[in-house]
Design a protein around this nucleic acid. Structure first.
Lengths: 197, 197
DNA sequence: ACCGTAAGTAAATGACCACTTACAAAAATA
DNA sequence: TATTTTTGTAAGTGGTCATTTACTTACGGT
């Protein structure tokens, strides 16, 4: 899963291109123009267009695993871990809005089985990390809500993050996504710590 | 916004086609084959491919407004209204999974401004209806959670529904989506009625 | 200086794209 | 029954697609 410098450059421009023109505008011709190259040159670095798309997902996966790797194993408070995940994601999207346009657009990768398989893997990575954090938080007594199942909490957290970013994207990245992320984080924190009755 | 019988048939098959082969497989040729017609025949009913996509969103909008129209104005308990919305959505997706493949795939409509404008409208319809329900529920004392802002609750509800359906779609519609919807509904109900401390 | 490889170009390939045109049934209307 | 409208077909149109080919340039090692 190693990429050359040029491959990184191509992947980067591909993400920009998809963000700008949608999957329909993601053509080798457009990509070559964006890179200041001819179409043939791209095929020196990737053997097909599908492989570029696959590499995009792989990059996302690598990025995610770097963030989530020690998410559960370390002994920080669960709330701190969740805060870290929130901040990392929203800061990342604020910095690279075009990634936000691609990462939650599963339908881009829908047509090829090899692509959607990797999308699923990416989602599962996040789910498992969150599940693990919540579990450890419940064990330590930090997360005291026992009436809501872990699995539902995960769905709520991931779902609301995704929806927040999707709305931001649809509004052409207007507004402060980091502020939005913080509001959401506070709400999630509150839900996680409500007392049973 | 009236459609002929044949236009409905074309829209229906278009949704199926997009669900099966993605936006890249949504071609007039493929659509004609699915309808048992030639390509030219389609142009007797729609003047362009873009108009078909636009009509798909319009159908979704009409469907949504039918469900949401009286969502707020009627005087049923807020929880009952939310339950109704949940049930309607999950039953609808269980019945027509291909719609689930298209309705949450905003990136399909991304490239043309006229299309993404309508997608935003569709999302706002749902947000406003939910906001209104929660507000009326809070006024009547039914929803007693005052620590969580309405806007965040809406994001959580819509986001978790969308994510649940997206996961179901990525697993090729395996599993009981209606059961999943009910679990989610119970969680949402619980969050809405937690007591302040 | 020579050589092999990596990285580029320009042009072509056949497949497929959305859409149009000329014409023919079929159905509705008179 | 005669005529008009609707709905279809078959065969194109020019354009774009991903990919390949043959050839060229840049460069690091010996």
């Amino acid at each position: 899963m190693k990429f050359t410098e040029m491959q990184f450059k191509i992947i980067d421009k591909s993400i920009d291109l998809i963000a700008e023109r949608g999957i329909q505008g993601f053509t080798i011709k457009n990509l070559a123009a964006k890179l200041g190259l001819t179409e043939g040159a791209i095929y020196r670095h990737f053997k097909s267009k599908e492989e570029i798309l696959l590499s995009i997902i792989k990059i996302f996966q690598a990025e995610a695993s770097k963030t989530l790797e020690n998410a559960c194993s370390t002994k920080y408070p669960a709330m701190e871990k969740i805060t870290k995940i929130f901040n990392h994601h929203f800061n990342f999207f604020a910095e690279k809005p075009s990634v936000a346009s691609v990462i939650f657009s599963e339908s881009i990768f829908q047509n090829k089985h090899s692509l959607s398989k990797e999308v699923k893997k990416l989602l599962n990575m996040h789910e498992e990390a969150l599940l693990c954090i919540i579990k450890s938080g419940q064990d330590s007594g930090e997360i005291i809500n026992g009436k809501i199942r872990k699995e539902e909490l995960v769905k709520i957290i991931i779902g609301s993050i995704r929806y927040t970013v999707t709305k931001w994207r649809l509004s052409n990245f207007k507004g402060d996504i980091i502020k939005e992320g913080n509001k959401l984080l506070n709400t999630v924190k509150y839900i996680l710590t409500i007392k049973m009755d």
